[in-house]
Nucleic acid binder design. Structure first.
Lengths: 197, 197
DNA sequence: AGAGTAACCGAACGATCGGTCGGGACAAGA
DNA sequence: TCTTGTCCCGACCGATCGTTCGGTTACTCT
């Protein structure tokens, strides 16, 4: 619950405050009163900058989705052997997730109670689906272990990546840059936890 | 949003209905009106069986926590080499998560807005901590890869396991019993995705 | 038949919800 | 100095929130 102090708000800077509160209390658990206290302006003043609560959610989610879908446009995600492309997407997804942490966190937690939330879930499923295709191709190339189903493997891979939002906090103890964490994720996911014998 | 029809409710049977709705709409996004519609009784009748909304949350979370902490009491989780105990706890955690799916799902999504929620988060942290200790011992035994931090590995492992609640639905397509999924989780986590060379 | 009680109901409570409204303070441009 | 527009405010709106209350039904036990 950060008490932000600034001369004047823009939709963007207000969004940053709002997303923090959304992630702390949950979207449904956050009232406009909570937002106004965190932003340091009155409840009604918020409506000068944005249309309402749901617009704040939409803006935040759009930003997260732009970051994620941008990955799929990168050359390393479109060219080369499937297993290499999959590794790249995995690494970059983890990185984007950490660089845009609060926005992606919000995206991953929507439940589908409003139109905006349902749109977010649909777009997210589309992203997952495209990565699943990549994994399926890597399996067909014989580059993935064959005793685990591709659908299941995709879900476990995403589970591992997405769980980052539950504990990663930027600029905290240790040498945990987003690059280093992403590298550890790729290693753990692709090579496993156990010592190679 | 299942419309349950039964002669009479018990706190337990009412809980089952409530937890379904909580998971669909989120706890904060669920009103007593929603619950009454799903249960097929009036809003005020709910208070004949339970004290209120927060008690339903407490009952559900207690059930989830009992299942999880029960794992740590099992012989295979207390005796033997650390890596074997860790594998057992991993497999069993995945199984319990699927067998008590709606209750554990609720536990994993708690945000900490009320006393009950904060208690749930604390108990869950305690469980995670005990598993982290196990992983640290396995690392000390040299049974885990040394180029990934133990803390990080614990989090990724839990991320993978806990993500099951996002997609697993009992009795659906394929041969996906909880045992089989749990086995796939263990294999993926400990041996990795890539083909062993 | 009568008493007791478990299960339920509609109506209403004060509080809080997201959002609206009219206007004040202030700076820039004329 | 007068207008215009930005940024903000307190007061208030109808709706919905979780919860309470008085009462009705229906079954059980004696």
């Amino acid at each position: 619950m950060t008490m932000a102090k600034r001369d004047t708000y823009t939709p963007e800077s207000l969004l940053a405050v709002a997303v923090e509160v959304f992630n702390e209390r949950g979207y449904d658990g956050t009232s406009m009163e909570h937002l106004s206290r965190a932003a340091g302006i009155s409840k009604s003043s918020i409506y000068h900058h944005v249309k309402g609560k749901e617009e704040l959610l939409r803006l935040a989610i759009s930003r997260a989705l732009d970051g994620l879908f941008g990955i799929l446009q990168e050359p390393a995600a479109r060219e080369g052997r499937a297993i290499e492309r999959l590794e790249h997407v995995t690494r970059r997804t983890a990185e984007v997730l950490m660089d845009e942490l609060p926005y992606v966190t919000l995206l991953l937690r929507v439940r589908g109670n409003t139109d905006t939330e349902r749109w977010a879930m649909e777009r997210r499923r589309e992203f997952d689906h495209q990565v699943a295709e990549l994994l399926k191709r890597a399996a067909a190339d014989g580059d993935l272990r064959s005793d685990v189903d591709a659908r299941l493997a995709t879900r476990l891979l995403f589970g591992m990546i997405n769980s980052i939002v539950e504990w990663y906090r930027p600029g905290r103890g240790g040498a945990a840059t987003s690059h280093e964490v992403a590298e550890a994720v790729v290693r753990t996911a692709f090579a496993g936890l156990r010592t190679q014998t």
